[in-house]
Simulated assay, not measured.
Amino acid sequence: MSIGNSPEDDRPSIGRALQQARIATGLTVEEVSSSTRVRIPIVHAIEEDDFSRCGGDVYARGHIRMLARAVRLDPDPLIAEFDAEHGGRPAPTPAAPLFEAERIRSEPRRPNWTAAMVAAIVAVVGFVGFTLFSGEDEGSGSGSANVAEGSTPDKTTPKPTATKPADPKPAPSESAIAAAPRDKVTVRLSATEGKSWISAKDHNGRLLFDGLLAQGDSKTFQDKERVDLVLGDAGAIDLFVNGKKVDDQFESGQVERLSYTKGDPEVG
């Protein structure tokens, strides 16, 4: 039996390891907060092993990953230690197998040949009647044919209706907001890889949206000067700014705080 603490007992906690690495690299909490966009109170709390201010385990993992990279630490062991202390990552819900749908599907119905025959006979009779009626109409020789209004198609160009058709839901692509006005900043978010909490504010700090964006949903924001974003899971989001897709390689679970103006993404 050995006396004393094992090497694992001497290993610093997650917060202590991040703090020691930050001090060793000569960085202040303010500098780490500026480079990672993690607020100063949250940085202090994490260094004290308090993850309650992160907003949940998903965001806590993202904060740990960003802080570790800022102070030149390998984030994977810290994430593994966090998972071990907090019950591990939640297991993804498996999709229902395709054969389950096949198994509950009802037996295919046999084609109703009787109905098909009746429909064909009605179509033939209708065509013959229309042909005979058209022939009598042409043989009348008069310019004013006795045809009921609307029985023949109007050959004049139809006038456009005043009702504006509903705009189709745009697909998330580089052309999705290609017509964005140049005098404003237009930002579009599409949750293509999963759901993510997002927050959007205008240049005055007014909250435009704060909530969960489900997979497959999209949100578009506009302002005359600037749009500020917070992405809870940046890896799940496709981002379009002023009609162009932003190709940043965000990782799953990564928290991002972003700001865009009218000149972005060229100057962003």
Rank of each mutant, 00 (worst) to 15 (best):
S151Q: 14
H86W: 04
A17W: 02
P97E: 06
P111Y: 01
T152R: 03
R72V: 04
V187P: 04
F130H: 12
K201A: 10
I237F: 08
E149H: 03
E31F: 01
P41I: 04
D76F: 08
C54A: 05
S190Q: 01
E251P: 02
F133G: 15
A176H: 10
A80L: 13
Q19K: 07
M1N: 03
L229M: 10
M66P: 07
V71Q: 05
S199C: 00
G216N: 10
S144E: 09
P90L: 06
F130Y: 07
G263K: 13
K159G: 13
L98K: 13
R65C: 02
M66H: 06
G253I: 03
L78H: 01
S35E: 05
S2D: 11
R61W: 01
E266T: 15
Q254S: 07
R182G: 11
N242K: 09
A70P: 11
L229Q: 08
S218C: 12
M1P: 11
M117Y: 12
V58A: 05
R109L: 15
E174V: 13
D238G: 09
K169E: 10
G87R: 06
A95E: 13
V227Y: 13
K155E: 14
T186A: 02
A178W: 08
L18F: 00
D202K: 08
I40Q: 02
N146P: 10
G135H: 13
V230F: 02
S6F: 07
F51D: 00
Q254T: 07
G205M: 00
E31M: 08
G211N: 13
G232Q: 03
G126D: 03
E30Q: 11
T220E: 14
I3W: 04
R11L: 06
T93I: 13
E266C: 04
P172Y: 05
R37T: 00
G87S: 02
M117Q: 07
T28Q: 03
D223L: 12
E30I: 03
F99Q: 11
V128Q: 08
G268D: 09
T93R: 12
V147S: 09
E31C: 03
R110S: 08
D228M: 05
G56H: 00
G141R: 14
S173E: 15
V32G: 04
E266K: 11
P153V: 15
S6T: 12
L73R: 04
E107A: 15
P12N: 02
R109S: 14
A115G: 08
Q222K: 05
V43P: 08
K164S: 09
G205P: 06
G232M: 03
Y59D: 06
R109N: 11
S218T: 15
L239P: 12
R53L: 05
V147G: 09
R11Y: 00
R226H: 14
P108R: 15
V185G: 03
P172N: 10
D76Q: 13
T156D: 13
G87H: 01
T131K: 12
S33I: 00
V125M: 07
P92L: 11
W197K: 09
F209D: 08
K244C: 04
T28S: 15
V29K: 10
Q222E: 05
G56T: 00
P181G: 04
S151Y: 14
L189P: 06
S151H: 11
G126Y: 01
V43T: 02
V124N: 07
P77T: 00
A180G: 11
P7V: 07
T152E: 12
R103N: 10
R22Q: 07
N146E: 12
